[in-house]
């Protein structure tokens, strides 16, 4: 393994590497967003207070049961298998799905299954007093969620969402089994052509590391921004002690 070989591989293949990395990032980001939205939806559905026995509550129970089944299936099976089942399963009905779409569907559904639990936990962990205070000034359940609870939940689940994004950047490599041209698949074809496996994959390794590292730093920054400063501005300088 030598530095010159790595350089020459890069020289010949850098556009492919970049395209692969771009694809990986695109899949990871889109599916994390989709997954977060799915998770948010399920988390909210699971925490709607049930009013005794009404038609509404029965419908809600049925929907929640279906959502639970989805979560269990996607959390309980490997993503690589899900990719095969979704892609070839649909292909069996004579319809060839776009590989990129299939990738986003699989990773997005997978992320959603994990996020659902984080969101549910995030909602449940909000102090009961927050709901009561909102109720006491006349807000309904929906208004309370939008203006009081969910903004706090967002902050609470941000670290988990960041983790999911990083996992998705890495784990999207398994999508190579359905020939999605992400970074790992691209590397496979590059290495297959030049037979320099170690060097070709070392480059890939570094590229993954850079992507995940940058993503985690950006998320850390966003978290800090959301928390704000510990100090605050006093409107006028009239009182001396403000701490």
């Amino acid at each position: 393994m030598s530095f010159e070989i790595i350089l020459s591989i890069l020289q010949e293949n850098w556009p492919s590497y970049l395209r692969g990395a771009y694809m990986t990032l695109l899949i990871a980001i889109i599916s994390t967003i989709i997954g977060a939205l799915i998770g948010l939806f399920i988390g909210v559905m699971h925490t709607i207070p049930l009013r005794k026995k009404s038609v509404k509550s029965i419908i809600l129970k049925i929907i929640n049961f279906i959502l639970t089944v989805y979560v269990e299936i996607f959390r309980g099976t490997p993503m690589i298998v899900q990719a095969m089942v979704v892609f070839y399963g649909i292909a069996a009905y004579g319809y060839e799905m776009d590989r990129f779409i299939a990738a986003i569907v699989v990773v997005g559904l997978n992320t959603g299954a994990y996020m659902a639990e984080y969101v549910r936990g995030g909602i449940v962990s909000i102090d009961k007093g927050q709901y009561e205070a909102a109720e006491a000034i006349g807000m309904g359940h929906f208004q309370t969620m939008i203006h009081v609870i969910l903004p706090q939940v967002f902050r609470n689940i941000l670290p988990a969402t960041g983790n999911q994004l990083i996992m998705n950047i890495k784990d999207s490599a398994v999508l190579s089994v359905i020939s999605v041209t992400e970074l790992f698949f691209t590397t496979k074809s590059i290495a297959g052509a030049n037979f320099r496996f170690a060097e070709s994959y070392l480059i890939t390794c570094i590229m993954y590391l850079v992507m995940t590292f940058v993503a985690s730093r950006i998320l850390r920054y966003v978290e800090k921004r959301m928390d704000g400063q510990n100090a605050y501005q006093v409107e006028q300088r009239r009182e001396e002690q403000m701490y």
Partner: peptide
């Protein structure tokens, strides 16, 4: 007005 204040934290 509550014992635990219950201001909206966000």
């Amino acid at each position: 007005v509550f014992q635990q204040f219950n201001l909206f934290n966000n």
